[in-house]
């Protein structure tokens, strides 16, 4: 239940941060990126009856958000196991 070495501990935190940052980049891109900053460009594309930018702003980003959290939970559990710090 404890980190084997001080290096392990540092590596764990580094992995944790890098996972978090990667997911936050996706978070930013789908919402602020596709839904707001690039909305006019994406609206040129049709996605079923939607304009794509509009769809991201009112539907798509939300689905991605839910997926992001579950990916995070899974990856953190894997991380905890790898470093032998998962709770029982």
């Amino acid at each position: 239940m404890a980190f084997k070495t001080e290096e392990d501990k540092k590596a764990y935190w580094r992995d944790n941060l890098s996972l978090m940052l990667k997911l936050l980049i996706v978070w930013f891109v789908v919402s602020f990126g596709f839904g707001i900053l690039l909305v006019d460009v994406l609206n040129e594309v049709r996605f079923f009856g939607f304009k794509l930018g509009f769809w991201f702003a009112q539907q798509g980003a939300i689905y991605v958000f839910v997926a992001l959290i579950f990916v995070y939970v899974r990856q953190m559990n894997v991380l905890d196991k790898r470093y032998g710090v998962d709770e029982e």
């Binding site: 978090m20 997911l23 936050l24 978070w27 919402s31 839904g35 707001i36 909305v39 509009f54 702003a57 009112q58 980003a61 939300i62 958000f65 992001l68 959290i69 995070y72």
Partner: peptide, 19 residues
């Protein structure tokens, strides 16, 4: 379209909270 501020804002905040 502007209504997206509520949709994105209130769900996106959860991602920040969870992560």
């Amino acid at each position: 379209y502007d209504g997206a501020v509520y949709l994105l804002g209130w769900t996106g905040g959860y991602v920040l909270l969870a992560l």
